[in-house]
Design a protein around this nucleic acid. Structure first.
Length: 336
DNA sequence: AAGGAGATCAACCGCCGTATT
DNA sequence: AAATACGGCGGTTGATCTCCT
């Protein structure tokens, strides 16, 4: 038998919008007892809700460390960049946006950013320019079009790179699993540098352990109250925004700015204003656009993700995309 | 002012991976 | 080893709000 149910499915459980009274009850209970078992929480808190509903209400709305309201331009940039790298992995993206929930980010993507990309003629799923010749339809003429084509080209690179990365993840996972089965896991210090013999492998100990079946809680680690993650978030935030401010992260920042600037014709006054401010940054010269910087910034972001969170199964530290790219995609990386 | 269309977002649903028995 | 519960994720829905005609 499996483990015993902590509460049975009960008829007459309330659904739909939460009332202030229910919020109060949930808050009061969690404040006093914390949330151990969500399944049993509703009964203990005096709520006629299922545990899942309570958990959702807490994580998406009642948690004290949630920031609500409009997304900043920095946040938008981060979402776009991370979506290009990670796809619809909202929880992973959310770890890079302190105080934002995955649900909120997902909603914002679906209602704002996705449409903006589509309007530019970029497929929001693949981040590739659409083949139907729709590109630039919403972006207007002149400089905007140039910026958009640049963005589209980079998005295309990104999509290729990401798909190669996912393939590599799968391959590394298989390799690591086989190795883990073949031999007992070495101590961390050794394992971290034990060298996986595949020339393409950059798997870290944490992943070796992970693939070997070591206990981990992907999502728990992400959201965590567990503090290495939180400190990472701070560090990442500082690195990301700080570096962007100093220009060393400007390529990826600019990449997102291009997307945002392309939306100027989308009649959002915020972006129109932004466009003027940033026009110097963009330089308007296709040839001078820094490919290497762009890729480095993506790599930085990936590496940050890798070292911070077990959410992603990707390699620990990537110093060069060619390290694990299949030949075809490596050619793209080799361009710089 | 009224009605319709589109946008927004909280909440639900179903699935999956992991933990537990 | 198998069965089952649990927590979490991403996709989707539907109620409400806002804008336009």
């Amino acid at each position: 038998m499996g483990r015993s149910p902590c509460c049975e499915k009960e008829a007459g459980l309330k659904k739909g919008p939460w009332t202030p009274e229910e919020d109060q009850k949930l808050l009061a209970y969690i404040d006093q007892h914390g949330h151990g078992c969500w399944r049993s929480l509703p009964a203990k808190a005096g709520l006629r809700r299922c545990g899942k509903s309570c958990r959702l209400r807490w994580t998406n709305y009642l948690r004290p460390d949630i920031k609500r309201g409009k997304f900043t331009l920095q946040e938008e940039q981060t979402i776009i960049q991370l979506h290009a790298l990670l796809g619809n992995r909202w929880s992973a993206i959310a770890t890079h946006l302190p105080k934002r929930t995955d649900n909120e980010i997902k909603n914002y993507w679906n209602t704002h950013l996705k449409k903006r990309l589509a309007k530019m003629g970029i497929d929001p799923v693949t981040h590739k320019p659409r083949a139907d010749g729709d590109a630039g339809a919403g972006a207007g003429a002149g400089a905007g079009r140039g910026a958009c084509s640049r963005a589209a080209a980079h998005l295309s690179h990104t999509a290729q790179w990401e798909s190669a990365r996912l393939e590599a993840e799968a391959r590394l996972a298989r390799e690591a699993k086989l190795r883990a089965l073949a031999s007992p896991p070495p101590p961390p210090q050794v394992a971290a540098h034990s060298g996986l013999d595949s020339p393409t492998s950059t798997l870290s100990f944490s992943e070796s352990a992970l693939f070997a079946g070591a206990p981990h809680d992907v999502h728990g680690a992400d959201r965590a109250a567990v503090e290495p993650v939180q400190s990472y978030e701070e560090a990442c935030h500082a690195h990301h925004f700080g570096a962007a401010a100093e220009g060393s992260f400007s390529a990826a920042g600019t990449f997102a700015n291009v997307l945002l600037d392309c939306s100027v014709t989308g009649a959002d006054p915020r972006f129109a204003a932004r466009s003027e401010v940033d026009s110097g940054e963009l330089q308007g010269d296709d040839d001078t656009y820094d490919d290497k910087g762009y890729w480095n910034s993506l790599l930085n972001m990936v590496n940050s993700s890798m070292s911070s969170s077990s959410t992603s199964l990707t390699s620990d530290v990537v110093t060069d995309p060619a390290m694990f790219l299949p030949a075809a995609t490596a050619a793209v990386a080799a361009d710089f």
